[in-house]
Computed example of a mutant assay.
Amino acid sequence: MASHIGKLPVAIPAGVEVSIEGQNFSVKGSKGSDSYTIPEGITGAVEGDQIVLTPADDERQTRAYHGLSRSIIASMVKGVHDGYTKTLDIIGTGYRAQMKGKGIEFSLGYSHTITVQPPEGIEFELPNANQVIVKGTDKQVVGQAAANIRKLRAPEPYKGKGIKYTDEHILRKAGKAGK
């Protein structure tokens, strides 16, 4: 029995070039290019405007890699065609960010500023001093770069101050009982 996810074909949008040479898979689009090595026991083929992955045998591990490979390839195709973005909000009095070259300099209530340089293939945007947009073609690297920025000052539960994802909901605590 093949993986439920792995047996689904990956649609190739217009403007995206796909090449498979043995176990090496590469994709090129308007936003960039990416490559991935398909694990042994799984073969890939381009059939029309779809990518189809087939497992050679029905071992449990091959089945797991089958679904994983399909998910990674689907993410790569979407990344080089549309790209990925993560938006972070900076909340708190005096908390702000500003561009410094390709990096961002954060003022987050510490005695010093923190400068973050973008990893390879990642781009930062600042629409205003309290919002950071992380863009790139690799879903994993975009998510990790955003998580590293959020980690600089994670949102706290009492006032909600810190760096949070735009779509993140912070559970608030009541605090002291008051007078």
Rank of each mutant, 00 (worst) to 15 (best):
M1V: 07
A2P: 14
S3V: 01
H4S: 07
I5P: 02
I5E: 13
G6I: 03
L8S: 08
V10N: 13
A11S: 15
I12A: 08
P13H: 15
V18Q: 03
V18P: 04
S19I: 00
E21M: 07
F25S: 05
V27C: 11
K28S: 14
K31S: 02
G32Y: 10
G32T: 06
S33W: 12
T37A: 02
T43I: 01
A45N: 09
A45E: 13
V46M: 13
E47D: 15
D49I: 03
Q50R: 13
Q50G: 04
I51C: 13
V52R: 11
L53R: 12
P55N: 13
D57C: 12
D58Q: 15
D58A: 15
E59G: 15
Q61M: 14
R63M: 15
Y65C: 07
H66W: 01
L68K: 12
L68V: 04
L68F: 11
S69D: 12
S69V: 12
S71Q: 14
S71D: 13
I72V: 15
I73Q: 11
S75M: 14
S75E: 15
M76W: 03
K78A: 14
G79H: 06
D82R: 14
D82T: 12
D82I: 10
G83A: 01
G83S: 04
Y84T: 02
T85V: 07
T85E: 14
K86Y: 01
K86S: 11
L88W: 00
L88D: 00
L88K: 01
G92Q: 01
G92Y: 00
T93D: 11
T93Y: 09
G94Y: 04
R96W: 06
R96K: 13
A97W: 09
Q98H: 01
K100Y: 00
E105H: 02
E105P: 02
F106S: 10
F106V: 09
S107A: 03
L108Y: 07
H112G: 02
H112Q: 06
I114Y: 00
T115P: 01
V116W: 06
Q117E: 11
Q117L: 05
P118R: 07
E120Q: 11
E120R: 11
G121W: 06
I122T: 03
E123F: 03
E125V: 00
P127V: 08
N128P: 04
A129I: 09
N130Y: 03
N130V: 03
N130T: 09
N130A: 04
V132Q: 11
V132R: 12
K135P: 14
G136A: 06
T137P: 14
K139T: 02
Q140W: 06
G143D: 08
G143T: 02
A145K: 03
A147C: 08
R150S: 10
K151D: 08
L152C: 10
L152T: 07
L152G: 08
R153H: 10
P155Y: 01
P155F: 00
E156P: 02
E156T: 03
Y158S: 08
Y158V: 05
G160R: 08
D167A: 01
D167N: 00
H169G: 00
H169P: 01
I170W: 06
L171E: 09
A174Q: 10
G175S: 04
G175Q: 04
G175T: 02
G178H: 10
